[in-house]
Design a protein around this nucleic acid. Structure first.
Lengths: 329, 329
DNA sequence: CGACGGTCGGACAACGTTGTCATACTCTCT
DNA sequence: AGAGAGTATGACAACGTTGTCCGACCGTCG
């Protein structure tokens, strides 16, 4: 900027005024400045500008589990779009479900003075964020609530969704329903499992530990679990897969064995209607989830000081057969 | 920091030393400072720090077409992971294939003094980036080369891939092959179309404009195009879909009609092995694409001043039938 | 006892920008 | 002509941090 000022023969402040489109600069002088800017390829330093003006950094931070997962990348995309409408960019990072890493990333984002944080929490204690919130960096939790912190959250009706899925299976006459889940350490998994158990209890079906498989982290494990359960005595006649990766593995295994066991999966996914066997899923609107969270965050950034809210979005049982294919979007 | 210094009864510089772990501070004094830091919840301002120290911002910018698309989200994920190994965060934005928006975003990223840029270009002129490169912000193009700029690029062998796909169809006896593409405005599409025509020319099959459909932007359009082409006189006996969204639409339409037309799709995708009809795809390693680009960028950031390189990664024809399902990963 | 080397702490300027205020000039109106 | 209002420009400090340099203090050795 000093160079531009020198080349145009004006003061620093005049350059600043021209660059920021402030009024009260003569046309001729502005042109001289713009010419100098063009010649030197000057570009305002956004960091210095925000520092001096005490302005927001026009950045929001997003912590998710893994960017490559379609669920999270949809969230990232929607929030980035909404941010763009406010000339704000998205700084995103994956926690990989590691609480330590999550805290590191969150601290890093805070030290960069992001305007706000959108977090799909992995950790079990977010109390260290309280001081940041007090100091003006609002936080909104997504998909799972934060712990030891009173902040906004936008969640899904995981319990209700799982309950309606199992209720459907029970209505179809199933009494032995295998449940496959990632890990009870994850809040959403606990909720979904509880919902499944609600439905079983509603139907007066007792709990059978042999029908619940924990630690199913990927499609291959899911396939193996299905195979194993089907070869036990008194096997399940239906399965509930508690996330989309598990569903994919289960679909594959059931299809390859030619098994006619029923399957309900939590999470819809892009090609679910093209799977090689009928697949009923518990769906929800991922974009709406992200949209609501971003709206809440921006309201906080704009000064909303009302009490933290928790929004729970509904799920929907999408019953589909082989021929019910519809094109996405 | 002023408050911390006052509370600890030391000077600013001493606080700075403690916060940055510099040596030559007595244990007792350091403890006093740390206590004050904890009490006040002080967190170093990364922007001011980078500004003063002339240090890098520990941020890289990524411009892609659309974050919600699995291809791009994989790229984002891999680059974010590699960045994290350098304590660098990823500032990502979607161009939505809009050259104007792309330029705005790139300028914004430059004004934030990112350490480097990773770009899947949408625009047709990137000469405005030349001055930024000169001023020390390296740029690496991904998937498509930049225009009017001499910069690194990591590309796929689009032409060779399409050629091998069509060669396969020709070897199976097909002579009328329908080609579906997004837009000839996109570099990768032009290359893939050229590859298809190479293979046809190799086989001595003349060009028939009626067999090429442009402007197929989504699955629904692809399905409609397939339906239309199949109801023309002398219809194609095989299709080449030049990206994964087109492939999905084509799969769906062929399957619903019970058509036995062959189908080869460019781009592999997660559930391609579970599609309801045999699907041969032209695959490649998206993660490797991102990895190589990030490696190049970090080398530039670390001072590599050698001549810009263009890396072309191979594609692979993945021939799959209904029963050849394999689990992903 | 004086000099010396090492350790520790602080004053000050600077990074690139903008808010505040002061100044100089130009109109217009009485 | 002089007051008053508005416009155009610049000098300077400040944002939060750190690099540079200088000085104070300590112990040790000749």
């Amino acid at each position: 900027m000093v160079d531009v000022a020198r080349l145009a023969g004006v003061s620093l402040k005049t350059v600043s005024r021209v660059v920021n489109g402030e009024p009260h600069v003569q046309r001729a002088m502005a042109d001289r400045v713009l010419a100098a800017v063009a010649e030197l390829g000057f570009q305002r330093n956004h960091m210095a500008s925000a520092l001096r003006a005490g302005r927001a950094s026009a950045t929001i931070g997003l912590i998710i589990e893994e960017l490559a997962n379609p669920f999270y990348s949809t969230i990232a995309h929607v929030t980035a779009e909404m941010a763009r409408d406010r000339d704000t960019l998205l700084l995103s990072a994956s926690s990989e479900e590691d609480p330590v890493r999550e805290e590191q990333l969150l601290r890093d984002l805070c030290s960069r003075r992001v305007d706000g944080l959108l977090v799909v929490p992995a950790g079990c204690d977010h109390s260290f964020l309280n001081s940041q919130v007090e100091m003006g960096i609002p936080v909104v939790f997504l998909d799972r609530p934060g712990t030891n912190i009173d902040a906004d959250a936008v969640l899904l009706d995981n319990r209700g969704g799982a309950r309606s899925g199992v209720r459907r299976l029970v209505a179809d006459g199933h009494r032995r329903i295998g449940v496959l889940l990632d890990s009870v350490d994850v809040h959403t998994m606990r909720e979904r499992l509880a919902g499944a158990q609600d439905a079983l209890a509603d139907a007066g079906i007792g709990y059978d530990g042999a029908l619940v498989r924990d630690g199913v982290r990927d499609p291959a494990t899911a396939a193996a679990a299905v195979a194993d359960m089907l070869t036990q005595p008194n096997p399940p006649t239906a399965f509930l897969a508690l996330n989309n990766r598990i569903t994919v593995g289960a679909v594959q295994e059931l299809w390859q064995r030619g098994s006619d066991a029923a399957l309900v999966g939590f999470d819809d996914f892009e090609l679910s209607h093209l799977m090689p066997r009928p697949l009923t899923v518990i769906g929800y609107d991922t974009r709406e989830l992200a949209r609501r969270a971003a709206q809440l965050l921006f309201a906080r950034i704009d000064g909303d000081r009302s009490r933290p809210r928790t929004v729970v979005l509904p799920t929907e049982l999408v019953e589909r057969g082989l021929t019910a294919g519809r094109l996405p979007r």
